[in-house]
Nucleic acid binder design. Structure first.
Length: 428
RNA sequence: GGGGGGAUACUCAAGCGGCCAACGAGGACAGACUGUAAAUCUGUUGGUUUUACCUUCGCAGGUUCGAAUCCUGCUCCCCCCA
């Protein structure tokens, strides 16, 4: 040990990632290299950027010389956390959970070092210790120590008393609490971290450990990310932003970060970037002097895209963004060679039509021959509203398209609004 | 068990026999401005063979020349009394 370069708590503080912690946490962490964990729910077969905050928590934790454990909720995923939920959760099947869990494992490896060092990260699955734990033993060994009164006082439970909560979800905090106890006894794990909505669940764990004679255990939470305009973080028009390239392409991923608002990017950068305080401060100053250059957005988008995907993916995304949004769009588009063209539009919805379909006019092309727009009425509306471009040129309802318009004799680039692109391949 | 109120498009919410594809607000989408921003302004927000027609106002029937609007039954929600 002895190589704790940075104080973890200090690191979180300046990054705006510290919401709350139990007394003595800072002491424990500065005193010795500590084992800590965060739990992840296997509700989908990919992490999304909302999950990135706890991931970054663990990343910094490890970089500060502590040992991170990633707990995937193979067991808890079978129960459902009531926190922040209005209604009872849908239960997932065993095989689905297994599949999701393996997919998430792979993604976590991009952020944490699982390979070497005393403090290398480990993945644990609470299904391993719960699958053979029978109900009677559990309520006697664990349930005995925590009162209903204590459990009911938690916000996550209180908020559901009116609308109803099943016994399964009610028990969730006990199960999560026992996870902590189990990790304490088997891995000497003394700290659990998570989003601030997890505070109640986490402290049930520290309380359980105390009552079961496990000694000191600590809790630390980070604030939930909020956006200046009040909308939910991590969503875009399409929905969630995923780390899986099949759900969110590297281009879309890059674009998400580029489009973060000026206000938000100042808060987001310290949270998601691994850059140090000096670098970030310097960039922030530049950003505030000339916000239109979007220096912070670009820096963040670059860092995130190359970390989550790759350098090549980043370059590809930048090239595509340049063609799609660059000043000289039309010429640039026409000057692309075929290979580059296909690369740029790789992640865009594509359709294939016959050359003879072109003469039927834009309405047919948009709504019947392709499903770029859901109906002909919609197509007419969009065309009237000047919202449709072909090869970067606005078209109207009676624009005649011909083979002369094709790029490389086979492609049309259709645009709806500013940001929605479609590729049409014309054959025959 | 008795009494009362309600169910309208993505959401909230008007309409209470024809002028209703249905006021208004929010959201969403688009246009202008711009920085691929924010704010602002504007337009659109059931479908089609688009100056007309078709399908929509909880479900099923009925009255009427004509119903989201009236009647009957059904389903679901809320409130009050026991």
């Amino acid at each position: 040990m002895g190589h704790m370069h940075t104080n973890f708590i200090e690191e979180l503080r300046w990054r705006g990632m510290l919401h709350d912690m139990t007394p003595g946490t800072e002491d424990q962490l500065s005193k010795s290299s500590t084992v800590g964990y965060v739990g992840f729910d296997p509700t989908a077969d990919s992490l999304h950027i909302g999950n990135l905050v706890p991931v970054m928590l663990l990343t910094h934790f490890q970089r500060c010389g502590h040992k991170p454990l990633v707990l995937v909720g193979g067991a808890t995923g079978r129960v459902g956390d009531p926190s922040g939920k209005v209604k009872e959760r849908q239960l997932l099947g065993t095989d689905v959970i297994e599949h999701n869990l393996n997919a998430q494992k792979k993604q976590l490896q991009q952020f944490l070092n699982f390979e070497d060092g005393e403090n290398k990260a480990e993945i644990v699955n609470n299904y391993d210790w719960f699958k053979d734990y029978n109900f009677l033993d559990f309520i006697r060994d664990v349930g005995k120590h925590i009162s209903i009164n204590y459990m009911m006082a938690k916000d996550s439970v209180k908020n559901r008393l009116e609308s109803g909560i099943s016994f399964a979800e009610f028990s969730y905090q006990l199960i999560q609490g026992y996870d902590f106890y189990h990790l304490l006894t088997t891995k000497n794990c003394r700290l659990q971290m998570g989003g601030s909505d997890q505070w109640g669940n986490i402290t049930t764990g520290t309380e359980l450990i105390r009552r079961m004679g496990g000694g000191d255990a600590f809790a630390l939470t980070s604030p939930l990310i909020t956006k200046a305009d009040g909308s939910k973080f991590g969503k875009s028009e399409g929905g969630n932003i995923w780390l899986d390239r099949n759900k969110t392409s590297p281009y879309q991923f890059y674009q998400f970060w580029i489009n973060v608002s000026d206000e938000d990017v100042v808060n987001f950068t310290p949270i998601f970037s691994l850059k140090n305080k000096e670098e970030i401060d310097a960039l922030t100053v530049q950003h505030q002097e000339a916000p239109h250059l979007r220096i912070l957005q670009k820096a963040l988008a670059e860092e995130m895209t190359s970390r989550v995907h790759s350098k090549e993916d980043l370059m590809q995304a930048q090239k595509a963004s340049n063609v799609l949004f660059g000043k000289s769009g039309q010429e640039e588009l026409r000057s692309l060679d075929k290979r580059t063209l296909l690369e740029v539009f790789d992640s865009v919805p594509s359709f294939s039509v016959n050359a003879t379909d072109l003469v039927e006019g834009p309405v047919e092309l948009l709504a019947s021959k392709t499903s770029i727009l859901p109906s002909k009425s919609e197509a007419r509306k969009m065309l009237k509203a000047n919202a449709i471009s072909v090869n970067k040129e606005k078209i109207s309802e009676d624009t005649a398209l011909s083979n002369d318009d094709l790029l490389h004799n086979e492609y049309l680039i259709v645009q709806r609004g500013k940001k929605n692109y479609y590729l049409i391949k014309v054959t025959g």
